[in-house]
Design a protein around this nucleic acid. Structure first.
Lengths: 232, 232
DNA sequence: CAATTCCAATATGTATACAATTTTTAATCA
DNA sequence: TGATTAAAAATTGTATACATATTGGAATTG
């Protein structure tokens, strides 16, 4: 479901990529967390060689940041990056939705419906991280239907980064993706209404964007004095 | 000038990335050419470890294709991929041009003028591969001016891939980038006319797209060490 | 002679060992 | 005590060795 962001690395490497990616997307690995090569290798039972390849692949999809001689960390997008990612989504995803509306088949529609149902179920059961992943999956599913590899790659990457951004900057956990917009999109798709799909998707992305909290979050204090933060 | 497509790998790795990328962009390495790890390592005097990292990075930017247990090859975009890349460019680059027109400074303008002059000089001297690289550089320079990292990354990647596509599918070598469009863009930038810049850029990309030839091309890869030897 | 099978040669996948860098800890001195 | 410095520990960068998979060709067979 969420492959191919990477340029298909060798078997073991890909497994580790997907595993770490999933963990990041489910917010099980917090932004900024150090991903030590030895530690990761120990966990998966492989050598550092494989781990390095996986971490590099994740770095290319902007989920991990690698600092020279210092190691890999779960990416921690800045506010600026957050805005840029959603600006890019606001440009690209409406165009993709338009393509999808023209190309969609009844089978695709059923798949989207199932997706939406799973999303609702997760929301109802209060499993927010799962709901968030599914919400992103809805967007990538649309890209898959559009069947445009270049756009799909871009959308997948942007969705991944959005997950990280939402972890850091969402006002409330529920802001993830109000299913209302997704439902409206479904209707447009059912009618093969490309113009409506494009319009709805654009509004939806803009809503998501404005649902972000503009205040800079406190980055983990570097020094102790800053942590105590009294004498400024 | 053409960095940052990669997630900044370690020193040696980056050198090799840039060297191979340059060679590919200058059409010194033909699409489909095998990039043997031993051979590349021999040429640059490094171990396969470093070469693998470089090749993986290049694979992530779609300049190289890695086939499991089979090795790395200079990417050979399909006709479909060619169309998709230019469709993506037609969507993204006009938006970027619009941003650039709003943000451009006199210093930026001078830089673009110099770029354009160099492009003309290369064309006049008949150095087509250089002209092609400079032509791509003009587009990435615009992205840099727009100062939007996410879009810039996308544009860089698309421009790189376009170079490969042009190597395979351009009708004639001169089709690369008629400087006329670039000149018209310059005027719009000079006037800070964002709407015009967007419009001109869109037309320009569409022209480039329709300048592609639909026939599959044949190519005979030259010796690897010979091609790279010149680039180093 | 063509097709097939098997083995050798070659290349990539992975693990491990060593080198270089950074971070931590301890010790020294003002 | 606090700051500075130096040694030690830990981590990443790189090279090499071994394991595994692919490729090419010789020998065999029909």
């Amino acid at each position: 479901m969420l492959h191919d962001v990477f340029a298909l690395p060798s078997g073991k490497t890909l497994d580790i990529c997907l595993s770490i990616q999933t963990a990041i997307l489910e917010h099980k690995l917090a932004p900024g967390l150090k991903l030590s090569e030895d530690e990761v290798g120990e966990i998966y039972g492989v050598s550092r060689t494989v781990v390095r390849a996986a971490l590099q692949a994740l770095a290319h999809s902007s989920l991990v940041t690698i600092r020279k001689n210092r190691g890999a960390f779960v990416a921690k997008p800045t506010m600026r990056e957050a805005h840029e990612v959603f600006q890019a989504r606001a440009l690209i995803e409406p165009a993709v939705a338009r393509l999808a509306a023209d190309a969609i088949t009844p089978a695709d529609l059923d798949l989207l419906k199932a997706h939406l149902a799973a999303e609702h179920a997760a929301l109802d059961s209060g499993d927010m991280s799962k709901a968030l992943v599914l919400s992103g999956g809805f967007h990538t599913a649309i890209a898959d239907i559009a069947d445009h590899r270049v756009f799909t790659g871009m959308v997948r990457s942007l969705i991944s980064r959005s997950s990280l951004i939402i972890a850091l900057y969402s006002k409330r956990s529920d802001t993830a993706c109000e299913s209302h917009s997704h439902g409206a999109l479904m209707d447009a798709f059912a009618d093969n209404d490309a113009v409506a799909a494009e319009e709805i998707q654009k509004s939806h992305i803009i809503d998501l964007h404005s649902g972000l909290d503009l205040r800079e979050k406190e980055s983990d204090p570097k020094s102790l004095s800053q942590a105590l933060g009294l004498a400024v």
